[in-house]
Amino acid sequence: MKILLVEDEAALRGALAGSLRQAGYVVEEVARFAEAHEKIALHQYDCVLLDLTLPDGAGLDLLRALKANRSAAGVLIITARDALQDKITGFDLGADDYLIKPFHLSELNARVRAIIRRRQFNGQQQIPFRELLVLPNLAEVHVRGELLSLTKKEYDLLLYFLANPGRILTKEAIAEHLIGDAVDAADSFDFIYTHLKNLRKKLQEKGVENYIRTMYGVGYKLSHE
């Protein structure tokens, strides 16, 4: 899986690339518009992460170039909160998704994974993890061949974990993933405990335990072993 990361801030680019590499992607980093333009003309990528504000050109023009090349790459736009018009134009030009800065890296992983999944397999695919098998286009989860019935939030939560296996997810990131901006209103993260508790209980009932580990004071992690 090859990703092109276009972001002019070096430190931020480093963090994003690091996180994506940990998730198993091959990442090429680019800081300038001209450089990015050259790369998309020469290489094929599965996904392009595009910061819209570049010092030497408009990110939206890169998007236009990608679409003109009939690139198969999915495009995830990264914007500042106030650039709402850019977001709309981006969607009109064929971007797959957008993230507003600042965002959680685990959220970025989940979005990238979803884009690549949709692009590569036309949605016809499976996500295997240990004894689990998820069929995203049917929104079904199987444990050793048995169907696991989950609520929508529990299913979302599980998919979020599956997009970040082995990675510690902070409670803030989980909360924001579940309820978006409404997270500002949450004085505590009680509501994620409820969903987590139910998800763990349902997994336990099917005989799979300790998939989701609590990292004390930090968050949760989907464990490989």
Binding site: L12, K101, H104, T170, A173, M215, G219
Partner: peptide, 21 residues
Amino acid sequence: QTPLAIMQAQLEQLLQVPALA
């Protein structure tokens, strides 16, 4: 905005460092 985004991203990465556990 930018330093904040960097801080947030780097701290999240720091949390993943195995030595921290």
